[in-house]
């Protein structure tokens, strides 16, 4: 009974996805379309490019280890640095009304600058290469984390802070055990947005010229007009985006179980 129900749920969700894929496959094969190759050919290109390696290296090709490690290193260094800086600065600014009032117009402006507009500037200052890519990512994604942390820290329940004060919880301990956990749901939301922005900026910075990375693979495929390979790159980036989001949500659900539980009861 239960299996049947789960199966039904799956069919209800997946039928449209399946239909779209089948239609895409049939139509593109029938008209022999160049720009939108059939899904099976994209999958094949994806396999050849990155996943046809020996079992000893988890089926990853040499190409894959090169591309993925380059891209992901940049992504996570940039995101991690921005995340750490955003939380620290955001907490400091959010705790002080004066600092917040002074900083918020500047911060709102900096957040509004679309990060790619600074790419030419960073290329001039740092030259093409890893530093430029990491700086682009970090500078582009620090604002959502910073502003969300500010907001979270400012909106911590005042009664919780009063309770902590009454029971003599010291300043530092108050920050670590009351303020940061109370702000955590908003901080995590900021980090999640930042991660998806970081992926976008990783792609853009690689499209500008790089020798390794998924973006450079995309660019190479475009220049040699190999459309299935280019689509493989697009799909791979989609998979990464999907996986990042899923892993982050899982982490969030574990770490913020209290928040989700408390929310569910509140509504």
């Amino acid at each position: 009974m239960r299996i049947l129900k789960a199966l039904r749920g799956f069919v209800e969700r997946a039928w449209l996805v399946a239909l779209v894929f089948v239609l895409w496959e049939v139509v593109t094969r029938a008209v022999n379309e160049t720009y939108f190759p059939p899904p099976t050919r994209i999958a094949q290109a994806l396999h050849e490019l990155w996943f046809s390696g020996p079992a000893s290296s988890l089926f990853l090709t040499e190409n894959a280890t090169d591309d993925f490690s380059t891209s992901l290193t940049h992504l996570f260094i940039g995101w991690g640095a921005a995340g750490a800086a955003g939380v620290v600065l955001g907490a400091a600014i959010g705790r002080s009304q004066v600092l917040y009032d002074m900083a918020s117009p500047v911060l709102e402006f900096l957040r509004a600058v679309p990060p790619p507009t600074l790419l030419p500037f960073f290329i001039i200052v740092f030259q093409l290469g890893s530093t430029m890519q990491i700086v682009t990512i970090a500078f582009g994604v620090v604002w959502p984390v910073l502003l969300n942390t500010c907001d979270g820290v400012r909106t911590v329940e005042s009664l919780q802070l009063e309770t902590a004060r009454v029971f003599g919880v010291g300043r530092f301990r108050r920050l670590v055990t009351i303020i940061l956990p109370g702000a955590a749901p908003k901080i995590f939301a900021g980090l999640r947005v930042a991660l998806s922005f970081a992926l976008i900026l990783m792609v853009i910075s690689e499209l500008f010229g790089s020798t390794a990375g998924i973006g450079s693979e995309l660019l190479g495929a475009q220049r040699s007009f190999e459309l299935p390979r280019m689509w493989a790159g697009i799909v791979m980036l989609g998979i990464l985006g999907f996986v990042f989001n899923a892993v982050f949500m899982l982490l969030e659900r574990r770490l913020l179980a209290w928040h989700i539980g408390a929310q569910r009861l509140a509504t």
Binding site: I200, V203, L207, G215, L218, M230, V235, L237, G241
Partner: peptide
């Protein structure tokens, strides 16, 4: 999840 900038090429 497909970053739209990936479609620029």
């Amino acid at each position: 999840p497909i970053p739209s900038v990936a479609l620029i090429p």
